[in-house]
Simulated assay, not measured.
Amino acid sequence: MLDSKQCEAFLAVAEAGSFDAAGEQLYITPSAVSLRVQALEKYLGQILIIRGRPSVLTKAGQTLLQHLRHTRLMEQNLLQGLMGKTSDSEFYKIALASNADSLATWLLPSIQPTLFKEKIVLELKIDDQSHTHTLLETGQVNACISAEEQVMSGCLAQPLGKMRYKMLASADFAAYWFRQGVNRESLRKAPAVIFNHKDLMHSEMLLKCFGLPMQSYPYHFIPSTDAFVKAIQLGLGFGMAPEIQVQSLLSSGAFVEIMPEAQLDIPLYWHHWKRQSKQLDILTETIVQAAKKLLI
């Protein structure tokens, strides 16, 4: 049976990144943390952490971390189900993962009344819609918005709708860079705006429609939803933006759609554990119903 203090020390190092930080978190010395982790490694017969700055988990360490995070979430759900809340707060804490575009547009306004009424506080983690599923799988969150349709064991997935993306540019940008039309040569010269290295929508669309890999054109990485749209508005480049976020700019003519064939509808799903707290049940219902009204 796993020793709780040893697991607590391992979890602290894994999440804080060092034995010193873990010691501060647990109010013990770094050497005491190290001794507890060593004892756990001896018991399991596996090296869990490669010591360094920062410390790095081995494959066995990653497996244990996933198990302990799952256990922690299950315990939180149990306490909330039996006690109505955790013992040290009148609020219920729920960890969610969302793609940045949902968070920046429809998600928070939709759940605000429920958060107030049910006294819920959120621990939000942000990732690309194709990667949030991993955060649920590794036990870091209770639920997530994901583009992944496949359901994990022990979980449920409910369709939310589709988020539509369009290839957009400011009117001035389009007039300058695409005055001869949007073609292979003009796209090789015009700068693009891409959210981050995980965002493949733009690059895959240019590769599919014009055979252009990312190395063949200039681009900005701007990993902020508001700054991303602002960059397009300022004429720094063209990019794939969610229609729900830029509808007013499209209606006013400030933004123009430069590649209608690049329009892309991304289906989103709400994944959560089958057994969850009453508060997460209520939040789930709120999110599913709101998405049906706001998404395609």
Rank of each mutant, 00 (worst) to 15 (best):
Y217N: 06
T132D: 05
I194W: 01
L234S: 12
Q46N: 09
L249H: 13
A21M: 05
I111L: 00
E261N: 08
P109D: 09
A174L: 07
L96E: 07
P191Q: 12
R53C: 06
L44W: 12
H220Y: 13
S110F: 11
R164K: 14
L207E: 03
S18E: 06
Y27T: 08
S4G: 09
Y27L: 12
K125P: 10
W273Q: 14
H202F: 07
G52N: 00
Y92H: 12
T105D: 02
L48Q: 10
Q66K: 15
D226E: 11
V33R: 01
Q180E: 11
Y269I: 04
L82Q: 07
V37P: 02
S110D: 13
A9F: 06
A231L: 06
L11C: 07
H133T: 13
Y165S: 02
N77Q: 14
T134I: 15
N183D: 15
T114G: 05
G84E: 01
F228A: 05
D128E: 14
K125G: 10
L200N: 12
L268D: 08
K292E: 08
G239L: 04
V121Q: 14
A175Y: 08
A60I: 00
L135I: 10
D3C: 13
V121W: 11
S98L: 09
G239Y: 02
G239I: 10
H197V: 14
M201T: 08
L73D: 02
I194K: 04
F116C: 11
P54M: 10
G161Y: 02
S130Q: 10
G17P: 12
T134S: 15
E285N: 10
W177H: 06
G211A: 08
P242D: 03
A39Y: 02
S216W: 00
T29Y: 01
W177V: 00
I232D: 02
A291N: 06
M259G: 09
H272W: 00
I47Q: 12
A190I: 02
A16M: 13
